[in-house]
Amino acid sequence: MISASAWADAQLLWDFQRMGHVPRPCSVAVGLGSHDLGVADVAVGLYRRGLVPLIVFTGATSRTTAARMPRGEAEHYRERALELGVPSSAVLVEPRARNTGENIRFSRELLAGHGVDVASVLLVSKPYEERRAYATARRLWPDVEIVSASSPMSLDDYVTTIGDTRLVLDMLVGAVQRLMVYPARGFMIETEIPEAVAAAYERLRAQGFTSRLVAG
């Protein structure tokens, strides 16, 4: 069981990660691979609205996705998009990336290899990793405009969809930690962390929501 105080802290981290960007027409949508097929659904929705002419799905597998997405995250995303009616000509697959930095770098290389002129990117992530993904893209792809996008669902609804409360809270804590430690490693731009968010992060970490933390 998750205590009411832990849930309130998780809500603070969830709200902080949401960038509040309004989707607008961009050169391409880049869907970041994960355990959550909802990322593919959001990218498809943006395509259907005419906001992008092309989708890139990026991701290999991780310890979280190896069993549920054995063909690779990007490939499963592509299959989902095709099931939803997106033509194969509008989808590119980047199957090697194993972290957010590689998602950005390899997608950039893939698009350049296909001669796609990119001025702006609709960056599609899980809801609780919008800010982390944005900070990474701004560091590694500084010459394009980044617009963050994710499912608009609430934390309650998201946990119900995923079916694993602890996994989501562990991921939330890990995403905030990366915002704190990765800028010094050159992986992302600096992000100001509000005191209330930092305190909630520390409380959740002290309660053991630590399986997705990185060393240092």
Rank of each mutant, 00 (worst) to 15 (best):
A90G: 08
T58C: 05
V91G: 06
A74N: 11
V91D: 10
L12E: 01
W7I: 00
V181M: 08
Q17Y: 12
P194F: 02
V121I: 12
R68C: 14
P53M: 09
E83H: 15
R178N: 02
R131Y: 06
G101R: 13
T58S: 14
A10M: 10
D15M: 01
A4N: 09
A4K: 06
G50L: 03
D164T: 06
L54P: 08
I2H: 04
R138A: 13
H21E: 12
A81V: 04
M1I: 11
L110C: 00
V168L: 05
R49G: 12
A29K: 14
T160Y: 09
G174E: 08
L12T: 05
R68K: 14
L37T: 03
V124Q: 02
H21K: 11
D170I: 07
Q177W: 04
T64C: 08
L111I: 02
L92G: 00
E73N: 05
L169R: 00
R185F: 00
R105K: 14
I2Y: 03
V28D: 00
A74W: 05
A40D: 11
V173T: 00
S148C: 12
F57V: 13
V42L: 04
E129M: 15
Q11C: 13
S107D: 08
A149M: 03
T65P: 00
P23Q: 14
P25Q: 08
V39C: 06
S62E: 07
V124H: 05
V91N: 08
A43V: 15
A184V: 06
R166V: 01
S27K: 08
V168W: 04
T165P: 12
A215E: 07
A199T: 14
V124P: 06
L179V: 12
